[in-house]
Design a binder for these strands. Sequence first.
DNA 1: CCAGACGTTGTT
DNA 2: GTCTGG
DNA 3: CCAGACGTTGTT
DNA 4: GTCTGG
Length: 246
Amino acid sequence: MCGRYALETPPEGLKRLLPFANSPNFPASYNIAPSHPVPIIRDSAVISGAGQYECARLQWGLVPGWMKAEKITEMSSRPQINARSETVTEKPFFKSAFKSRRCLFPADAFYEWKRSSKAKNQPYCIRRQDESPFMMAGIWEFWQGADGSEIETCAILTVAANETLTPIHHRMPVILEATHWAEWLDTPDVKSESLLPLLVPAPEKDFKFYPVSDAVNKVANNAPDLLAAVPEIENKDQQNAQFDLF
DNA sequence: CCAGACGTTGTT
DNA sequence: GTCTGG
DNA sequence: CCAGACGTTGTT
DNA sequence: GTCTGG
């Protein structure tokens, strides 16, 4: 799945990739975590009727419009950061967002933790072979409290991992190629069922992965070196074992 | 009909 | 173990 | 996603 | 809001 990622490319860089009308300002983050405000790109026709793209920062963890206020605090401990693409059309939690409020999550990398019963879980960084940014498919929601409070939230769609990533993890985010961005964002007019063929794992060869420092585990750590390749934890243990011999 | 849930991940 | 905070 | 806390009473 | 369970 996708529970932590990095966005290094600044707003101007994203704008060249997928032009949006506004001029947001946000810092690079190498450790974007659930519940953080995350930059997403959406068709502003849904909001303003302008029919242009906009880049906005929404809270990562989807909250449907019908959710009761007291349930929101309850859910905040386990935010809905992902939506299974296999069932997104059926689940009451997601279906209306999928139909009418789709968006893209720009990213330069995402992290996955390979689980281990023996050692500490090993974090990996996954990114394009050429390390260029990519777009993850997502949905967003609008929630309004009785007191007038408002929040906008979002979630990333997931699919089964491709063959490359299966050794690390069995789920991965849906990643859309540039040729499909416009179709995906065209929420008022494009029939959502016609988009289901896009919800497939990314091609094996497009992405690489490598182990990174477990400094990424801690959300407070946020620096470019979180993306740096390091030896596997197993190797580290071996090194320590060797060190102990001397 | 009304009441109550509505999610993912991973693990068992 | 389970919940909250980031 | 992972890290880190997880409690009461009374007194200062 | 919309679906499921009773």
